[in-house]
Design a protein around this nucleic acid. Structure first.
Lengths: 354, 354
DNA sequence: TTTTAGCACTCATTAGATTAGAGTGCTAAC
DNA sequence: GTTAGCACTCTAATCTAATGAGTGCTAAAA
């Protein structure tokens, strides 16, 4: 059943009020503040209906109403007005984003902290995932008798590297020969296509020195497989204290325990990344219990993605209470994501890369 | 004035009790629990003296006594019994420390999380600072027309690298020539000895191509200067919720806001690092207002250092309420630091390095 | 038929009052 | 010098009453 226009107006008013006050909203205050031309009694009747339909909830009989999860969902999907960032806000964002940065992870961390400062919510940002990136070039750089540096350059321009152990006695010549063969065999492949088996094909080309080759190949395979370490940066977690719903120590503890564990955040973002691959929204909103983690089921999560070379490689997420300023958050995140994508591209094109 | 043995016993008893209960300690409970052979009235008199001397405080007239900062200091310096880790605890530590780790930062992060789990306090660990390390070897690896990878290997075996921009048109030959000269000039110097001026001496050796050399040298100088990025990992911040003194939202917020800012932690640890350079304690304890940050002046900080090549390169700190199990914390940290130093050495000697 | 005024009712929150209890300080006896 | 005893203090817990925001229902008005 479609809601009447009047019910929709009233629901919208309730959500708007509740978001800004955090107090259950009563019929009288709606009648007063919003010019609906209705008496409180009428609104009261409509509210009773909306509650019956599942869009509102009552903390206790003599309190006002609070939007239910369903209510927020309807609000987000159909009712909320698009928020247009003010010039001042845009300037603020642009100003905050400016910063000389040397390393990619620093850039990501900075973006995370900027977003949480601007939105006053908690932010999580993942570093670029390279599984889908292809290898442009790789090189083994000798370090000492026991180790070498494996440098991997992806098509998007990101450079990753890690030291690997080599058998003693492997010489420079051997490494450069191996480098050439590795490039021949692996360049163009995506990270996720590379596994030990693939790498072992190289054995054939380097028939000699098998006993020192194998352990190196294993190390290279391992390294490539997990070089895509997928870190996550958290910003502004303490912002949660600004919301009265987290004035309860137990709730605050639950929240912090959840976000302290990077594994949780990783899973959380990953769930949504899949979502973007299917739909082609730029922004996704997950309200309350719509996400699987019980610890943050009083929270909503607004996410977006960023890309390199046309492929989604990372995510940005904003976590706040379900009573969140959805419209403003969405607009801010949209703009911030666009800015970030540009920054990233510019940064990589300037010759930075890891 | 020296405290009488009896006063010392009583103070010790009070600190011990308060640490375990978090409740002000009364004369009667001391008389009962601790076998001092004294009546509560006598203890009461002694406690009044101890308060007058500044070792105890009274939250209000009809409450028991609580150790003052001075009281904790005396306790820590003179009264507390050395705690000997049990076999089970040692096994627990050894078991927790075991983990296959690929990157140095992961190792540090892991140690931080282990320590906070074992002690139930909050832990901060700094990554190795390389200012005092000397350069064993460096190399420029060409990446593409606009960038190269500068690889720096320190005497302790730690490898750092970062991409730097190069002028277009710089060829491989140029880079390898530059690499040779850089090594000739810089190998053996410590990171902090290197500055732009030092690097510019290289100009003389490479008279040609000055216009493309200068920007590269600047980049190299910048990179070396700030490669010692000094990250800090935080573990178990939510443990603070387990202490009744942090059941107050305002206090919890203050604490989290402080530890969320890496800059604060960096400063905090740095202050103490200087301390270790002067004295040669292995463990340092800072109680309450003894540290400069007002946000954590109800906390105590137990720190230790770790070294590479005989030089202190990093710090481990444990933050808890001033009402902390000092003896046990000190013993645990001592043991954990020793273990960590060993792990680090073993890890580097196995050919890992960044 | 829809809207609204009016009123009785509910229930969380707050303030005030009372009580219980832990602990002290002091005095006088040991 | 030590201790028993007691009056006194102050917090924390419990209870009570008052307040008031908000509802649901009914009957009148539109």
């Amino acid at each position: 059943m479609e809601l009447s226009e009047r019910k929709r107006k009233i629901l919208q008013a309730i959500v708007d009020d509740y978001v800004s006050t955090a107090e259950p909203v009563g019929s009288r205050s709606i009648a007063k503040k919003h010019d609906l031309g209705l008496s409180s009694a009428t609104i009261r009747n409509e509210m009773a209906d909306l509650e019956e339909l599942g869009y509102l909830e009552q903390p206790h009989t003599s309190a006002g109403r609070v939007p239910s999860q369903l209510g927020y969902r309807l609000y987000v999907d159909q009712l909320m007005n698009r928020y247009k960032l003010t010039v001042a806000e845009i300037q603020n964002i642009q100003y905050a984003m400016e910063l000389k940065i040397k390393e990619l992870n620093e850039l990501i961390q900075h973006v995370s902290s900027v977003i949480s400062r601007l939105t006053q919510y908690t932010t999580i940002v993942s570093t670029p995932q390279l599984k889908k990136s292809s290898i442009k070039y790789l090189q083994l750089v000798p370090i000492d008798s026991k180790s070498a540096l494996l440098v991997i350059i992806t098509n998007a321009g990101i450079v990753k590297n890690r030291t690997i152990k080599i058998s003693e006695g492997v010489n420079v010549e051997f490494l450069s020969k191996l480098t050439a063969i590795l490039n021949d065999k692996l360049a163009g492949l995506t990270i996720e296509q590379i596994n030990l088996q693939k790498i072992q094909e190289i054995k054939k080309e380097m028939i000699s020195n098998e006993e020192m080759l194998m352990p190196i190949l294993e190390h290279i395979s391992d390294t490539i497989t997990d070089i895509d370490s997928g870190e996550i940066y958290l910003g502004g977690a303490t912002n949660i204290f600004n919301f009265p719903e987290y004035n309860d120590i137990e709730k605050a503890k639950e929240f912090f325990s959840f976000v302290e564990e990077k594994k949780n955040l990783y899973k959380l973002l990953n769930n949504f990344q899949n979502h973007y691959l299917k739909s082609n929204n730029t922004i996704n909103i997950s309200i309350g219990k719509e996400n699987e983690f019980s610890e943050i089921q009083d929270c909503s999560l607004v996410t977006s993605t960023y890309s390199l070379g046309g492929k989604i490689v990372g995510m940005i997420g904003i976590i706040g209470p379900t009573r969140m300023e959805y419209a403003k958050t969405v607009s801010s995140l949209e703009y911030l994501t666009k800015q970030f994508n540009q920054m990233l591209l510019k940064w990589l094109s300037e010759g930075n890369s890891d």
